[in-house]
Design a protein around this nucleic acid. Sequence first.
DNA 1: CGGCTTATAAACATGA
DNA 2: ATCATGTTTATAAGCC
Length: 201
Amino acid sequence: MGPIIGMSPDKKAESPARSSTSRALPEAECAASPLATSLDRSSSSGDEELTNLNWLHENLLQNFTLGGPEAQSSPSPLFDIEGNHSASIISSAAVHAGESVKSKPPFSFSLLIYMAIEQSPSKSLPVKDIYGWILEHFPYFSSAPTGWKNSVRHNLSLNKCFRKVERGLGKVSSAKLVILLSHLTNTFMSYPEVEGVVPSK
DNA sequence: CGGCTTATAAACATGA
DNA sequence: ATCATGTTTATAAGCC
């Protein structure tokens, strides 16, 4: 009765009838080396960084500024540089997307995770809380077939934007793992082309 | 057309 | 032993 059912890796022929909502998001690798080197994008010679910014731009901007046919109003999205920068943006976007349609959110799993983590006080969340955040803001997943959690985990592992850190200090219980986002935040904060967003510098 | 990105499913490993 | 978490592989579908 294990959660895993035996099967051969050769047989795969199911068509999940994917909706055409998915857009190509140049996710790119969010720079393997966070903090230190990638912080100075003044060199502007790194293509990786460009790609990096790209996906954020494509996603956050499009979704947040456009929002949708009805939710075109996202005037509040100004954020402060100190800590809760994109929090407001994320919230409104999430709320819009969540309440407007109960269908599949227009955000990739990476974005979903990113938003969840951004909203957390410590910029880090246990996997379970990521599930929770997604469920809260996107009811679609409440009734979605099982497997989206797998996708979340898959994304966490695959994306270099997310780091696995330990939750120490007093907290015994179970040494749960926390996902921390580092470089992505800096990139977003200092990306000047973001409308309605005040760059940190 | 090929390459890249994403979503999904699944196998498997590990720790509580 | 079961479940939650993490990693990795494979495949299909979309986009540029």
